[in-house]
Simulated assay, not measured.
Amino acid sequence: MSGPLAVVLVAAGAAIGAPLRYLADRFVQARHDTVFPWGTFAVNLAGSALLGFLAALPADPALMTAAGIGFCGALTTYSTFGYETLRLAQEGARFAAVANVAASVAGGLGAGVCGFALAHAVTG
């Protein structure tokens, strides 16, 4: 899908995903007293699972544009993941930085696979 409608669908999805990312991140992080960025980790796993789920559904360009690209793209955040990992390393929390990279990559891939499998189980 391309053109003006695609831009509107991406913007609509992102308008929901971005504030939800911020609120979910703050909600999760406020419940942990560690340097590990649990909030970013949680939204990235959730977004990966949802995108995996959407990818397994029958092709609907409008749904994938709004929910997959717009919503999931704004909900997940590679830039914040990179920033927080770098910050951890600079502050001497090297184990947490390495753990963040390993857990985020493995967890994101695993969440995507689980979302994909769940969609196949639900849709048959």
Rank of each mutant, 00 (worst) to 15 (best):
residue 22 Y to D: 04
residue 102 A to V: 15
residue 115 G to Q: 06
residue 6 A to I: 06
residue 41 F to Y: 07
residue 17 G to C: 01
residue 75 L to Q: 04
residue 48 S to M: 06
residue 65 T to R: 05
residue 115 G to S: 11
residue 67 A to K: 01
residue 115 G to M: 08
residue 111 A to M: 10
residue 6 A to L: 07
residue 69 I to D: 08
residue 87 R to T: 08
residue 14 A to Q: 04
residue 64 M to Q: 11
residue 24 A to E: 00
residue 107 G to C: 14
residue 24 A to H: 02
residue 101 V to R: 06
residue 60 D to H: 10
residue 9 L to K: 00
residue 72 C to T: 02
residue 98 V to Q: 00
residue 102 A to Q: 13
residue 23 L to P: 03
residue 122 V to M: 07
residue 100 N to S: 10
residue 85 T to G: 14
residue 3 G to L: 10
residue 115 G to R: 04
residue 11 A to C: 03
residue 45 L to M: 14
residue 58 P to M: 12
residue 97 A to T: 00
residue 12 A to W: 01
residue 2 S to H: 13
residue 119 A to H: 05
residue 102 A to C: 14
residue 111 A to H: 04
residue 118 L to Q: 08
residue 86 L to F: 14
residue 53 F to D: 08
residue 25 D to M: 08
residue 110 G to K: 10
residue 95 F to L: 03
residue 116 F to E: 06
residue 20 L to S: 12
residue 112 G to H: 01
residue 34 T to Y: 04
residue 81 F to T: 02
residue 58 P to Y: 11
residue 123 T to H: 14
residue 9 L to W: 02
residue 115 G to N: 10
residue 114 C to V: 15
residue 108 G to C: 14
residue 89 A to I: 03
residue 23 L to M: 11
residue 93 A to C: 00
residue 97 A to G: 00
residue 26 R to Q: 09
residue 22 Y to C: 00
residue 115 G to W: 03
residue 50 L to A: 15
residue 109 L to I: 15
residue 4 P to A: 10
residue 89 A to W: 13
residue 115 G to A: 09
residue 67 A to T: 03
residue 103 A to F: 13
residue 55 A to R: 04
residue 31 R to Q: 12
residue 79 S to W: 11
residue 33 D to E: 10
residue 24 A to T: 14
residue 102 A to S: 14
residue 34 T to R: 07
residue 70 G to R: 03
residue 112 G to R: 01
residue 56 A to E: 13
residue 25 D to V: 13
residue 107 G to M: 15
residue 22 Y to S: 03
residue 52 G to Q: 09
residue 31 R to L: 12
residue 47 G to Y: 00
residue 24 A to M: 13
residue 96 A to T: 01
residue 91 E to P: 05
residue 58 P to A: 13
residue 55 A to L: 11
residue 16 I to V: 15
residue 27 F to G: 05
residue 69 I to R: 00
residue 35 V to Y: 03
